[in-house]
Design a protein around this nucleic acid. Structure first.
Lengths: 111, 111
DNA sequence: CATATAATTCGCCATATGGAAAACAATCTC
DNA sequence: GAGATTGTTTTCCATATGGCGAATTATATG
């Protein structure tokens, strides 16, 4: 896990972490409140937060004894961009396929 | 790794696997050709293919001694859909924020 | 101060992951 | 059929992951 996308996608590969992102998209929250919906221990939950932070999805600051987490929605861009690129390659390919059909099969029709 | 999105995103969390998807978007290919650009052994590469297959990104058939892999571009939908959902939550939130600014701070201006 | 709360650290464990080498199997091709 | 090519299986290894409970550190609050 070194690359940006590596850690970004890896962070998404877990339902707990996706849920946390979803929750945080709705607004910042402290750790304990974030953890409440899940049935895992706090230490484990903290690990998930670290993965999310490392993946660039969240950030957090501590004031007093409470750490407040908030999402970094910019991360959506990187992920979306990669998917869009793949779609572009795919589209280009299907275009070439259309070309092929047009130049070859259509020619065949004309025979 | 049981959920759809879990395995789908997990498959994306590795540069080799993302590259394979990119390559396959361009058209089907046999295993050895797919593996050529990478500096890992075939057995290791096969594991990556299995992860991609399990994540729903590729499919493959064997004819004679060659196994041909092709991408399943539908998988893009699931991933894109999740990201779009998050963006929607985020947008709803910023809308509420705009409401708040309008009803409260703007009122303050009028004082 | 005594206690409750919020978060963190520390071991510990089972399983998964990404890598390798070696041997094996199947199928072309000469 | 001999030999090359293409995948596959097996075994092994180091490290990462996701989980736990227990102990610890801050910081509020009665």
């Amino acid at each position: 896990m070194e690359n940006n996308l590596d850690s970004a996608f890896h962070a998404l590969a877990d339902p707990t972490r996706r849920a946390v992102i979803g929750r945080l998209m709705d607004g910042p929250a402290p750790v304990t409140e974030l953890a409440r919906p899940f049935e895992i221990g706090l230490p484990t939950f903290l690990k998930h937060l670290r993965v999310l932070e490392q993946g660039g999805w969240i950030r957090s600051e501590k004031r007093g004894r409470v750490r407040t987490c908030h999402v970094r929605p910019e991360r959506l861009h990187a992920a979306e961009r990669w998917l869009a690129e793949q779609r572009a390659i795919w589209d280009a390919r299907t275009d070439r396929l259309a070309d092929y059909v047009e130049t070859h099969l259509a020619a065949e029709d004309r025979r």
